[in-house]
């Protein structure tokens, strides 16, 4: 059975995935729009930076984040100077790590969806008196809806599966930064295979149900659009 610590770890995982996905959608939306629209010659540079977590070992990313967010790092130091505490080994630190790590999984589907719309609907909206921000929210975002679903599912699922970055910057503090994937690792290390089974199966079923639900919804939305 799942013990209380495992359930807590599951909740931290879901909370982390939920918050990270939300922040990613909000931040990724303008970034993806800009990448889809800009004529800038050097646009491949931000694109490469966004895609970096796809190829970088999570431990490398985690290591640099640890340095940055720790008390001697630029971000952590700033936080300390401002009277806060460093972000390493905190839930907020985990959220920051997850956002960076899952960035390409959210930005790329959004960018593809925005590119697929083309310039025309936005021009039409401009001739119908809609300002740039107005037409972004009333035309571009609704037309890119399938892209938002894909982005949300991939971002969420990828954050649930995260291990290396979390381990590096979150440590393994029960009730605060111990997520399900690390709890499973701990169980296996401690030869508690029954616990590992329960937690793994829960994650498996949860992820599968999530994908089923969202893909089902997404298909329905596509039918409406056609």
């Amino acid at each position: 059975m799942l013990n209380e610590a495992d359930i807590t770890a599951l909740f931290i995982t879901l909370r982390l995935a939920f918050i990270s996905t939300l922040v990613l959608l909000v931040l990724g939306m303008p970034l993806a729009w800009w990448l889809a629209r800009t004529q800038w010659k050097l646009k491949f540079i931000p694109e490469a930076i966004v895609a970096l977590p796809l190829v970088l070992p999570p431990t490398v990313l985690g290591f640099y984040l640890l340095l940055a967010l720790g008390p001697n790092g630029p971000v952590g130091g700033l936080m300390e100077a401002a009277g806060g505490r460093p972000l390493a080994f905190t839930f907020t630190g985990l959220v920051i790590g997850s956002i960076i790590y899952s960035m390409p999984f959210v930005v790329q589907p959004l960018q593809d969806a925005f590119s697929a719309i083309g310039k025309r609907p936005m021009e039409v909206a401009a001739t119908l008196r809609a300002s740039p921000i107005d037409r972004f929210f009333t035309v571009a975002v609704p037309l890119a809806r399938p892209g938002f679903f894909t982005a949300a599912v991939l971002g969420f699922a990828h954050t649930i599966g995260e291990f290396g970055v979390v381990l590096m910057i979150g440590g393994n503090i029960p009730g605060q930064t111990r997520v399900a994937s690390i709890a499973i690792y701990d169980h296996v290390e401690g030869l508690e295979y029954a616990h590992a089974h329960w937690l793994s199966a829960t994650l498996l079923v949860l992820s599968f149900l999530l994908l089923i639900a969202v893909y089902g919804l997404n298909r329905r939305f596509r039918l409406v659009r056609q």
Binding site: R120, P121, E123, V124, A125, A126, T127, L128, R129, A130, S131, P132, D134, R135, T138, V139, P142, L143, R145, R225
Partner: peptide, 29 residues
Amino acid sequence: PTHRRSLGYVFQESSLFDHLNIRRNLEYG
């Protein structure tokens, strides 16, 4: 900017918004 010019524009190909029904397309502007 275009959205502040008092003009109407009919494009060559269909330019209706696919996500809105005809009434809401008409009301958009």
